[in-house]
Simulated scan of single mutants.
Amino acid sequence: MLARLMRAEAEGEGDLGMLMVGNVGVNRVRSGCLDFKNIRTIPQMVFQSPGGFEATQKGYFYQGARDREIRLAKRMINGERQHPASNSLWFFKPAGACPSQWFDQWNAGRFKSHCFFRPTSADCPNVY
C-alpha cells in the first residue's frame, strides 16, 4: 500500500521523489503526534480522513505496485530517510515558491515540485 501511494503521489518526480513521499508516510505512522496521534498503521495513514492523500481518490492508486516501488517502500519502512522529508509530516505542490510555514509547520525544503514541512522536535519528538 505504501508503494502504491508513493507511485501515485510522486512517480513523475522519480525514485527520490517517491522515497520522500514514503518518508512522510512512515513519519506519520511513527510520530504519534499532532494530526497523527491515532495513526498506527500504513492503511490508517493512507486513508486518514481528513488529512489523507488525494491520490487515494484516483484510480491510479488502486493499480498494483511494481517491484521497483515495492523496493523503494521497503527502504522507507526499514528506516531510510531522505532530506528534506527526513522529519517531515506534510508535503504539497504549490503553484509558486514554498511558503516558510504551512499550517504553522516549518518548511524543510523543496524537491522538484513538492514542498516539505516538519513539526518542531518539541511537538513531535518521534520524527527526530
Rank of each mutant, 00 (worst) to 15 (best):
G52F: 09
R81Y: 03
R28Q: 01
G52T: 09
P43K: 06
C98E: 06
A97Q: 15
C124Q: 09
G79A: 10
N126W: 13
E80H: 10
F61C: 07
K93Y: 09
M20C: 04
L2T: 03
Q63S: 15
F116R: 11
V29R: 07
H114E: 00
P50Y: 11
S100C: 06
M6I: 02
A3Q: 05
Q57D: 11
G96C: 11
A55G: 04
S88C: 08
C98R: 13
M45S: 08
D104A: 13
N126Y: 12
S100M: 12
L2E: 01
Y60K: 15
Q63H: 14
C115W: 06
Q44G: 05
G25S: 07
E13I: 02
E80W: 12
S100E: 14
N38V: 01
C124G: 07
W106E: 11
D104V: 07
Q82C: 01
I39E: 04
R66M: 09
G25P: 01
L89C: 05
A10L: 02
F117E: 04
S31K: 05
R81Q: 10
G79L: 10
G32L: 13
N87F: 15
G14T: 02
V26N: 05
F91M: 09
G96S: 13
E80N: 05
D67Y: 00
L19S: 03
A95C: 09
